[in-house]
Computed example of a mutant assay.
Amino acid sequence: MSRRSHAERRAESAQRLLAACVELIAEQGFERTTAVEIGERAGYSRSMVSVRYGSKEGLLQSLFDSEIKQRLLPDHQLTGLAWVLGHLDHAVTLLELDRDLAKAFCVLIFEGVGGIPSVREWYAGWMVDYEAALVQHLTEGQRDGEIDPGLDPVQEAEQIVSYGLGICFRWTIDSENYDFAGAIRRWRQRLAARYRPDPSGPAVTPAAGATAARPRRSSRSSTGRP
């Protein structure tokens, strides 16, 4: 059996540290998790996080870039209504495949409200970008005839973000009893029904001012009402 290269060993250690970080955030939050705990959970020395990332905050940034940001996105080929609903389908799939990562994502949202500026900044930028993308795809869905043209994409995007945060909060508070996947599936059904155009209704142009996404404040690239 050939010896692994330095690059292979480094990649493995990085992945194990990221996995340990996700597990611990899901269990107890980022603020309560120490770099020592992450290193030990990954099976390395107490100083391994500092060696690889400089600090646990450096590891968190890597987690945002390589895991959360990438794996939260559905198929890039989707557009319009398929993109909007695809995000919910993707969230259910992520719950089934990597519950810890989904839980860590939710836990970090609410930790960002407190005293972790880097977390708050990342999520604030992410929400601005996500809401702008929702407006864009809802508008495209109206142009394609898939979404009721009488709806306001800006208001719908705001409601989607707000409702999504609400069910994330419920799951974070009571993850053992709250059926998060079921809530997302029911939400998807309501959205699909709400957005369906009325075939007997008159042709209506999209709401004024809804044809362009809001300007982004970040460089990072519904609901049936509850």
Rank of each mutant, 00 (worst) to 15 (best):
residue 97 L to S: 07
residue 97 L to D: 07
residue 98 D to C: 01
residue 98 D to H: 07
residue 101 L to Y: 09
residue 101 L to K: 10
residue 102 A to Q: 06
residue 104 A to E: 05
residue 104 A to D: 00
residue 105 F to Q: 10
residue 106 C to A: 13
residue 106 C to I: 05
residue 108 L to R: 10
residue 109 I to E: 07
residue 110 F to Y: 13
residue 110 F to V: 03
residue 110 F to I: 04
residue 111 E to C: 05
residue 114 G to S: 09
residue 114 G to V: 01
residue 114 G to E: 05
residue 115 G to M: 04
residue 115 G to F: 00
residue 116 I to S: 09
residue 116 I to Y: 00
residue 118 S to H: 09
residue 120 R to Q: 12
residue 120 R to E: 03
residue 121 E to A: 12
residue 121 E to G: 07
residue 122 W to A: 01
residue 123 Y to T: 02
residue 126 W to A: 11
residue 127 M to F: 15
residue 128 V to G: 00
residue 129 D to G: 11
residue 131 E to Q: 15
residue 131 E to V: 03
residue 131 E to C: 02
residue 132 A to Y: 11
residue 136 Q to E: 14
residue 137 H to A: 05
residue 138 L to C: 05
residue 140 E to H: 10
residue 142 Q to G: 09
residue 144 D to C: 04
residue 144 D to V: 04
residue 145 G to K: 15
residue 145 G to S: 13
residue 145 G to W: 14
residue 145 G to P: 14
residue 150 G to L: 05
residue 151 L to C: 04
residue 151 L to Y: 05
residue 152 D to T: 03
residue 154 V to Y: 14
residue 158 E to T: 12
residue 159 Q to M: 07
residue 164 G to P: 06
residue 164 G to L: 08
residue 166 G to S: 12
residue 168 C to G: 00
residue 171 W to C: 04
residue 171 W to K: 06
residue 172 T to P: 00
residue 173 I to S: 10
residue 173 I to M: 14
residue 175 S to I: 02
residue 176 E to T: 06
residue 177 N to G: 00
residue 179 D to E: 01
residue 180 F to S: 00
residue 185 R to Y: 08
residue 185 R to F: 06
residue 187 W to P: 02
residue 188 R to I: 02
residue 189 Q to F: 02
residue 190 R to Y: 06
residue 191 L to V: 06
residue 192 A to Q: 13
residue 194 R to V: 01
residue 197 P to S: 08
residue 198 D to Q: 12
residue 199 P to W: 14
residue 202 P to A: 14
residue 202 P to D: 14
residue 202 P to K: 13
residue 203 A to R: 15
residue 206 P to L: 12
residue 208 A to F: 07
residue 210 A to L: 03
residue 210 A to P: 04
residue 211 T to I: 04
residue 212 A to C: 13
